[in-house]
């Protein structure tokens, strides 16, 4: 019996050491570099009062807006997030409107890539046109600092935090395609930066900045 207990104790210690390695694995905590001199900048906030729509399968720490928005509970869309929000440009730029559809990537693994999310944006600028942005983002650093550290491990928030999650799909970042209006035919790249000033169990205070650089 004592031999079995020794083996089990070893297994548990090894598993805990493995989890610690995964938690602090530097390969999954890498941040991407921002784009230099982007032509377009779009700022947004996840706060309910700055969001038109945000709904998911009710497992995310993001408020559902409006409160009666249908949840994405069906098997085919479970794990997805759809949101729509006003986007603020830099001073002098017209305000835009954005829709974001995201879902966790099946390419996710925790040795090299981290928690990958496929983000799809439609961004419409009044009197100008509409852009499509496809980004692959590693959201593990953000979730590690919030959900894992604060919600699960009951440690205090270490922020404020700044995250540059864009990992692809192109080497230069997100892929941007112009769909309509002045943007039609445009190709470029994009990058997202997330900022979290405080965290008390909800990602409500998260703000983001999407930058676009035309090729």
């Amino acid at each position: 019996m004592k031999y079995v207990l020794s083996l089990l104790a070893g297994l548990m210690l090894g598993a805990l050491a493995g989890l610690a390695l995964i938690l602090f694995n530097p390969l999954t905590l890498n941040q991407s570099d921002p784009l230099s001199n982007p032509e377009w900048v779009f700022n947004y906030s996840l706060a309910a009062e700055h969001t038109w729509l945000s709904t998911h399968d009710d497992r995310l720490e993001i408020p559902v807006v409006p409160r009666d928005a249908p949840l994405l509970w069906e098997n085919g869309v479970r794990g997805s997030l759809i949101s729509a929000m006003p986007l603020q440009g830099e001073s002098g730029s017209p305000p835009a409107a954005g829709t974001r559809i995201s879902f966790a990537s099946s390419e996710t693994e925790f040795l090299r890539s981290g928690l990958l999310v496929e983000d799809h944006w439609l961004i419409s600028v009044p009197d100008v046109g509409t852009l499509f942005v496809h980004a692959t983002s590693n959201q593990w650093p953000l979730l590690r600092d919030t959900l894992v550290r604060v919600n699960w491990l009951k440690r205090s928030w270490s922020g404020p935090g700044r995250y540059d999650p864009t990992r692809g799909p192109a080497n230069a970042g997100a892929e941007v395609s112009g769909l309509s209006g002045v943007f039609r035919g445009l190709r470029g790249h994009g990058h997202e930066r997330l900022s979290l000033e405080s965290y008390a169990g909800s990602l409500d205070p998260l703000t983001g900045q999407l930058t676009i650089k035309v090729d």
């Binding site: 297994l11 090894g14 598993a15 805990l16 493995g18």
Partner: peptide, 18 residues
């Protein structure tokens, strides 16, 4: 046995993560 369990637990967790 403790050492063997440790190695198995460590490697198993990392392999599972991947």
């Amino acid at each position: 046995l403790l050492q063997l369990g440790f190695v198995l637990g460590l490697v198993g967790t990392i392999v599972a993560a991947y």
